[in-house]
Design a protein around this nucleic acid. Structure first.
Lengths: 185, 185
DNA sequence: TATACTCTTAGTACTAGGTATTAAAAGGTG
DNA sequence: CACCTTTTAATACCTAGTACTAAGAGTATA
């Protein structure tokens, strides 16, 4: 016995973390033991077989891809008057919050506001130039952030937009955005 | 022959788009044809078998999971002196940019900066209170954003952090963050 | 009507990467 | 030496296929 069972199992877990696509055969070679030993190890450790592992990975990302892939806008736009105002909603889920305390990471609120501000501008190219933002109170998991954006001024190639995000009519985020635009449609 | 071959194949593609986890058997039932017909259809359409499909999904998201799942931080932290300074790198990929023009959406640069600023603060709870940010030039796909954050002041329960993001020593983003902190570790 | 042709179904052999089970060998410890 | 854990081996079976051959069904064409 070269290394102990415990050590081998530890090694296995690490190896699978680095490359979850290993077959039992490959693991057996890696650990210099028989395939049966590997299978017993997987049993003990509660590690499913390759195909199950792959499936779990694919499934877990499938939802995420679906909910995050239409990434052009963060949050669901429910109202939009181009060059005037818009409203979007973002429900804070576990992927948005700090594990530790369940408080939403600021950049998601920013992303919602930024997306809406950009989406508001009726131009071929619209890019954020600058922003002044304020996080007024922490937002928690399961809260629905309703984001209101309003164009306050449009000068030369710049659009000035004011954004307020509320949770139950309580303001949680405020931002002033300056957006650069090029060539009206 | 109820529906034509073309119609059936169209149906198949749509069904698989909605649920890529279907076996040939399930598809056969769905289309009211034999399993062999489904296999011929897959051949013609160049659709791989279930296991291959699942594997492709898992693989394609594996990289993304790696780079995005440790979501506590957007970007890879390569240097960190708590309460002093830190550096992180974010490579702009296709999921970060506007499809239209290949320019990075601002909120990713913000997220990188915000994450680093929060990560810099050595406290149990650290939350962004406000930020003043400026996007100095557009960042394109494949560019590597190196983000430098520096604590400039720490007063009461607030930490003031300055962040500069560069691409090839050219400044692309600048931000001043105010971070709230609670209870030192 | 017979023939040609596409479409569909059936059946067999084989594959990877396993599970589940039983049994035997190897190794270390009291 | 006996006991017990650990490891290996062997066998039957499973799923979701591939690869291939062959035959039947349905339709159009000479």
């Amino acid at each position: 016995m070269r290394i102990t069972k415990k050590e081998r199992q530890k090694k296995l877990v690490q190896a699978l973390e680095a490359d979850p696509f290993m077959t039992d055969e490959q693991m057996a070679k890696l650990c210099q033991v028989s395939i049966q030993t590997i299978r017993l190890d997987r049993m003990e450790l509660g590690i499913p077989e390759l195909r199950e592992r792959i499936k779990l990975m694919a499934e877990s990302n499938f939802d995420r891809v679906r909910s995050l892939a239409p990434q052009e806008v963060v949050g669901e736009v429910i109202d939009l008057q181009l060059d005037q105002s818009g409203v979007s909603i973002l429900e804070i889920k576990k992927e948005h919050v700090f594990e530790r305390n369940g408080i939403a990471r600021g950049h998601f609120l920013f992303a919602q506001a930024n997306s809406l501000a950009i989406g508001l501008v009726d131009a071929e190219v619209a890019l954020t130039i600058s922003a002044e933002i304020r996080f007024l109170r922490p937002v928690h998991i399961n809260e629905k952030c309703v984001c209101y954006a309003k164009v306050v001024k449009s000068q030369f190639s710049r659009t000035y937009i004011e954004v307020r995000t509320k949770v139950n009519s309580e303001e949680v985020f405020y931002g002033k955005f300056v957006v650069f635009r090029q060539k009206k449609k």
